[in-house]
Design a protein around this nucleic acid. Structure first.
Ligand SMILES: [Zn+2]
Ligand SMILES: [Zn+2]
Length: 262
DNA sequence: GGTTCCGGTTCG
DNA sequence: CGAACCGGAACC
């Protein structure tokens, strides 16, 4: 079985492929063996807002959402902003961690061949079909909570929600065009419908669990659990367990890890 | 100053 | 409609 696990991270101070040193106290994907360094321009997948060696802000998801709980239920707020364009609309940055963002360009597709460096004319100006960011493709910015929006989810949320109408459907509409994504953290999207089973007294689905895990790990963990003496902390989303149970324990599991060095 | 490539516009 | 095109900001 391929090495997917945690062992060996402790003494690694730089990526064994791209040789970039890991800064201390930073969030990194799979610190031991950067799978993305195959693409020189994207040697690591950085996580959340942080700083790199040059103290420069790392390119990060622009639509991560903060969460707060109250008697009203949960409130999601998007704090970050995207890049404004001349037309007043915003141009989203790629998320940096989806399958597309982790892929190298193929050099063979329509858009690759359009690039001048492959001899093309540069008229199409799109990224490689394999590199297309999954969190941009298929979603509009309006699918997410916006800056300063406060979107509440609660059992009797119909009257309560101000900026986004929340209707918790009982049956899951698989490809509804009215999906609203309340929250996004690294690798997780939260849909309104994800809460249906919660408020029906049934179960927490994986999306909620993973969103909460990432949120705790990135936002609450540093303050509340600094008394723990470990240096390295690892977060394994439920996806990892699912893959293990399916016998799919391969190197791709590394991509789901969040690793934190205190 | 070159590359990337989103997002809007125009075309067929 | 989708495909082609293009402006232009970000990043190097
Ligand atoms: Zn390609
Ligand atoms: Zn992405």
């Amino acid at each position: 079985m391929a090495q997917w696990g945690v062992s060996g991270h402790e003494n690694v101070s730089s990526c064994d492929r791209c040789k970039l040193p890991f800064p201390a106290n930073k969030f990194l994907y799979h610190t031991n063996g950067c799978q993305n360094s195959l693409s020189p321009s994207n040697p690591h997948v950085p996580l959340t807002t942080s700083t790199n060696n040059d103290n420069k802000e790392i390119d990060t998801c622009t639509q991560d959402t903060s969460i707060s709980a109250s008697n009203d239920g949960l409130a999601f707020t998007c704090e970050s902003e995207n890049i404004a364009t001349s037309g007043g609309t915003r141009k989203r940055k790629r998320c940096g961690c989806c399958q597309g963002c982790r892929s190298a360009e193929c050099g063979k597709c329509k858009y690759c061949l359009d690039k001048p460096k492959y001899g093309g004319s540069g008229k199409l100006r799109q990224c490689c079909i394999h590199k297309k960011c999954q969190e941009i493709k298929g979603f509009k910015e309006s699918d997410f909570a916006k800056k300063k929006d406060k979107t509440h989810v609660s059992p009797n949320t119909k009257e309560r929600s101000k900026s986004l109408p929340i209707l918790i459907e009982e049956e899951k509409s698989e490809q509804s065009s009215t999906r609203k994504y309340l929250a996004k953290a690294k690798g997780t999207l939260l849909d309104v419908a994800d809460f249906a089973t919660v408020y029906n007294g049934e179960w927490l689905n994986d999306q909620i669990i993973n969103y909460a895990l990432v949120y705790i790990f990135l936002e609450e963990f540093p303050e509340k659990l600094t008394s723990l003496e470990s240096t390295f902390f690892y977060l394994l989303p439920t996806t990892v367990f699912t893959k293990l149970m399916l016998g799919q324990a391969d190197d791709s599991l590394n991509c789901y890890f969040l690793v934190r060095k205190m």
